[in-house]
Structure formats: C-alpha cells, structure tokens
Amino acid sequence: MIDLLHTPLFGVIISIIALEIGLYINRKTKISLLNPLLISIVLIIVILIKFDISLEAYNEGGGLISFFLGPATVILAVPLYKQFEIFKANILPIIVGITVGCLTSVISVVFLSKLFGLSDDILRSLIPKSITNPIGIELSKQIGGIPSITVTAIIITGIFGSIIAPYVFKIFRIKDKVAIGVSLGTSSHALGTTKAIEMGETEGAMSGLSIGLAGLVTVILIPLLINLLC
C-alpha cells in the first residue's frame, strides 16, 4: 500500500473511483446540487485527510489527469464543426455576447472584492474564474494572482453555473439554443459545456465555442484593464 501511494497510479485510481461514485449518486438522486465533480472533490479531500496522505503523493497521478485538460477542451470543437452554419449565421451576436459576458464577469469580481475588502492578490486570483483551467492558470500567473486559488474559483464557478443555469433559463424563459450555449460556455467554461451538451447538440456546440473565445477575449482584455480596474 505504501509503495502504491508513491506511484502515479494512486492519484489516477482515486480520481476515477471518486468520480464514478459521484456519477452514480447524481444518476440515482437526480439532484443538480449533487454534482459529480463536487462529490468527487469532497471524497478525495476526505480520503487524503483521513489516511494522512500528502497532496504531493496524490498529485503524482492527479497531475497526469490535469495534463489532459487542454486536449479535452480542444475536443469540444467537434460539436462546433457539426453546427458551423449556425455559428456563421449568428457570428456578430455571439461575439458581442461573449465579450459582454467576459467584461461583466471581471467587473463583478473587482466590485465585490473591493466591497468585501479582499486583498489585491485574492482579487487578481479570482479574475480568471470564468475561463477554462489551462488558460486561467497562466493568466493568473501573468497578472500576479495565486494559481491554486484561481483553480478553486474556476471549479466552483463551473459547478455553480451548471447547477443554477437550467433554473435561470426557466425563470427568464430563455429558449434560444444559441443563447443558452453561449451563456453557459462564457460563464461556466467546460463544466457549463457539459450541461449544455446534455441540453442539446446546438447548445453544446455554442458552449464549446464560447470557452475558447471567452478565454481569448479575457486574455486580451485583462492585461489592458488590470491596472485601471485594480
């Protein structure tokens, strides 16, 4: 057992088992709050604390899973290819919507951080919360944030967004498939896209597109606005 703890296999096995348990609970209960990723994160934390396993030991395998975040995000381009005609027909509102969504996300973080008196390091760490992990981590480093806090914020944002989005669409009677996909991808990145794919192929394609464009828009705008906003 001790030898297993110090091999990459340990982190991979624990991650897969925890996620499968999360998926099983989510399927059985059908409760949105019991998100599979949220359950798996809690289970892994409990296991590491209960058995006094260091984060470094877990990351030997967990890091391998993180390595595939980038390629997994690229795969989301496949649904977009199938729905490319819809994208061309709505290109202007899509780009405007994503840009406005990115600006709203950043401005709300700055406003709330200043309202609650958060430190400048925390503020800068939270700014990339709505873009996908690989881009968010690098942007956090670039603007002086703390990558570990950024990752946590990105995960929480994705989980929260994927949980409440269906209720928001229902309350405000949002039925347009393109609008649903763009809003989910822009605000909740890959986790939101997972929910969008569940809702339909067009929603999933537009959400997958929004992940890349939202990341690009944020990376371009933040270095220009960071000193002004902070």
Rank of each mutant, 00 (worst) to 15 (best):
L4M: 13
L4D: 07
P8F: 05
L9Q: 12
L9G: 07
I13H: 08
I14W: 08
S15K: 06
I17D: 06
I21P: 01
I21N: 05
I21K: 01
I21A: 11
Y24D: 00
Y24C: 05
I25C: 06
N26S: 15
K28N: 02
K28S: 03
T29K: 12
K30A: 14
S32R: 14
L34R: 06
S40R: 05
L43D: 11
L43S: 09
I47H: 14
L48Q: 11
K50R: 08
I53S: 09
S54P: 11
L55F: 11
E56Q: 13
A57P: 06
G63N: 08
S66N: 13
L69K: 03
T73I: 15
I75P: 00
I75H: 00
I75S: 13
L76S: 02
P79R: 04
K82A: 00
F84P: 00
E85Y: 04
E85M: 08
I86H: 05
F87A: 14
L92E: 09
P93T: 13
I94Q: 10
T99E: 00
G101M: 02
G101R: 02
G101D: 09
C102N: 07
S105A: 15
S105D: 08
S108A: 14
S113P: 06
S113F: 05
L118R: 03
D120Y: 07
D121W: 03
L123P: 02
S125I: 10
N133Y: 01
N133G: 04
P134I: 12
I135M: 04
I137H: 02
I137K: 01
E138Q: 06
E138W: 00
L139W: 01
K141E: 05
K141N: 10
Q142D: 12
I143F: 03
G145N: 02
G145A: 09
I146H: 10
P147Y: 08
P147A: 08
S148C: 09
I149P: 01
T150M: 05
T152V: 15
A153M: 14
A153Y: 09
A153I: 10
I155S: 14
I156H: 10
I156G: 06
T157I: 13
G158R: 07
G161Q: 12
S162D: 11
I163Q: 13
I163T: 14
Y167V: 09
Y167D: 02
V168A: 15
F169Q: 09
K170D: 00
I171M: 12
I171T: 14
F172G: 03
F172I: 05
A179R: 05
A179E: 04
A179Y: 03
I180R: 14
I180H: 02
G181S: 11
S183G: 15
S183A: 15
S188A: 15
S188V: 06
T193M: 13
A196L: 03
M199S: 03
M199P: 00
M199A: 09
M199F: 03
E201Q: 11
E201D: 07
T202F: 00
S210Q: 12
L213T: 12
L213W: 07
A214G: 11
A214V: 14
G215Q: 07
V217G: 07
V219D: 13
I220L: 15
L221A: 13
L224T: 12
L228S: 11
L228K: 10
